[in-house]
């Protein structure tokens, strides 16, 4: 029981981590709580569905339930979701950023954007559930008493690779360094010649791409529905804040801890309350360590 809960927790955690990276960047680089981020997760999943509808999920490769087409669908959805995030920024958030509006009006707007995005999904695809593939899979016993589906193992592996690549990108590339500079201090970064608008654009694109990946993984285990991202919203914020806003590693560790907390809670409380666990984690963090595990202490604003 315990081992299986931990394995499930790590899997949920990996998916949360991918979404939480974007939330974390949003909090620190774009400087607002982007409540529309969860809808990028949903859109990513549905955009991949569009690709799969036309190309098919592919013939199962080895033990996996899908073929190369689903990987292609993920790339397709990642790019389009990145562009979508950027377009929303141009239409809504950039205008508010450049006006003298109250900083929190961005958060209001994010909720408004989220409502529109989520219900456009309902408008197009309806309330029902969709599957990428109907292939059945046999769970493998990875450790004594712990079973995982091959798809789930694939998700964990790919998440690890992507996070490692992101880490290298942030550490060594020019854009990555500029992003970290913006996260530290936007005004200082500007003075040092960082192209703020370009960094903002890349931040949206990367956040959108990673959110789409989370969405596809979520849709693969096992289904897509219009509230799939929205239901993850608190977990994303709990993970980003627990890890420390602006920190990539923080978001990943935060995601794993939140995923574990959610799945381990089922051993103690009724599963009906499982979705409240991220919130409990969030309250504890805000109370005892609001700067998060990997965050710098910051004056309250």
């Amino acid at each position: 029981m315990l081992g299986q809960a931990i394995a499930d927790g790590i899997l949920t955690g990996a998916i949360i981590a991918l979404g939480a990276i974007g939330v974390s960047f949003g909090l620190q680089i774009l400087r607002f709580a982007n409540f529309a981020h969860s809808e990028l997760v949903t859109w990513g999943a549905y955009l991949a569905l569009v690709f799969v509808t036309f190309a098919g999920p592919g013939t199962p490769t080895g033990p996996l339930s899908f073929g190369w087409q689903l990987i292609a669908a993920m790339v397709f959805a990642g790019v389009l979701t990145g562009v979508l995030a950027w377009v929303v920024d141009i239409l809504v958030f950039r205008r508010l950023r450049n006006s003298d509006a109250h900083p929190l009006s961005m958060v209001f707007a994010a909720f408004g954007v989220a409502l529109v995005m989520r219900h456009v999904v309902v408008l197009i695809w309806g309330h029902g559930s969709y599957f990428y593939t109907r292939e059945l899979q046999i769970a493998l016993e990875v450790l004594p008493g712990i079973r995982m589906l091959p798809d789930q193992i694939f998700i964990l592996g790919l998440t690890f690779v992507v996070v490692a690549a992101m880490h290298l990108y942030l550490t060594y590339s020019r854009t990555g360094m500029a992003m970290r500079a913006m996260a530290e201090s936007p005004s200082l970064a500007r003075v040092c010649g960082v192209q703020v608008e370009s960094v903002v654009r890349w931040t949206w694109f990367i956040s959108g791409g990673l959110a789409a990946m989370a969405g596809v993984f979520l849709g693969l285990t096992p289904q897509l529905h219009p509230e799939m991202g929205f239901n993850l919203l608190l977990a994303l914020f709990a993970a980003a804040i627990l890890g420390g806003a602006g920190s990539l590693i923080g978001a990943v560790v935060g995601g794993l801890l939140v995923g574990l907390a959610e799945n381990l809670s089922v051993l103690f409380i009724s599963p009906g309350y499982k979705t409240a666990m991220p919130f409990l984690v969030l309250l504890l963090v805000l109370f005892f360590r609001p700067q998060g595990l990997f965050g710098e202490k910051e004056g309250s604003r």
Partner: peptide, 28 residues
């Protein structure tokens, strides 16, 4: 008491969480 000291958007997240939790309680 727990959240009002925090930056404005953290208050937004916390209060949003309250609403979700209360909804779970009313349902369960």
């Amino acid at each position: 008491l727990a959240t009002i000291r925090l930056r404005g958007d953290y208050l937004a997240i916390s209060t949003f969480g309250i609403a979700v939790t209360i909804q779970l309680v009313t349902l369960n």
